[in-house]
Amino acid sequence: MRSLYAFLLRLHPRQFRERFAEEMMAIFDEARSFWLLGDVLLSLMRQWALRPQQQAVQVTVANPCGMFQILDSYHPRRSALVQGAALSAIFFCALVFAATNGARPIKFLIGSPDPRSGVLSVTRSSIEPAVPEATVRVPAPAVDPWRNFASKYFKIIYVLRALDANHDYVISADEIVAAPAALQQLDLDVDGKLTAEECGFCLGAGYVPDCRGDNGTVGDEHGHIEWSRDQVERFRAIFMAYSPVLAALDTDHDVEISASEIQNAAAALRRLDLNGDGKLLPVEIAPDSEARKILFNQR
């Protein structure tokens, strides 16, 4: 109880504490009454709440005619001054040490996957003390096989290129919703439907789909390649079946995407969303290997 009373006394304002705490403690030691704890609590609240004017710093004027006044008689302890001086010296020495060592040139690791005479050698003394100099070969960045294929895949299939508005090789939910409008942009002859050619089908640099001869063949302008009409129709069917996206859009498998199929494109595309995440990932729109082989062989 005495410790608690002493603690509460220590919480009083300094001016009051220094003046009366000793006497109050003496009274407590003499009276040893529990109600004194309540009294000191009340005193604590009264001193902080009702006696703010008594906490004002008493200004001692050292020189009434001068400009400087002493606000407090506090002086730092001599040990504190010594400690501060020692810390300052240590800090200064550390600063000087850092500055002098920091002036030395810093060696960076420099490497290349294709080292040439112009490529600087690398100092790796911290890693291999026995071999102070070595050439570091940085491995070539990993190539995403799907991205490499998708760049060609989306280029060949105009429908995919039109659907993938942001060119990330993923048909997002928003792009699925916007599919009818995107497909209508491919309708160059404005007949309301998309032929295989409008979807990206092409047999060569000189291939003109409307240039059918009387013998039922089509050929390039140099006459190097000549396909029969049946062959071209078969190639069109293969092309439309090549991509799961085209196959899904051409619901009646008539080798063209009709106006109604364009309007229902969003629903048709959503059927390809196998994992139900709302977008068509590469694995969901990649062509099967058989169709890919056929198309690439034709190209």
Binding site: R19, E23, M24, F28, D39, L42, S43, R46, Q54
Partner: peptide, 11 residues
């Protein structure tokens, strides 16, 4: 009169 009140008044 408690010491707190006493010394508050004495102050």
């Amino acid at each position: 009169l408690g010491p707190g009140t006493l010394y508050d008044n004495l102050q």
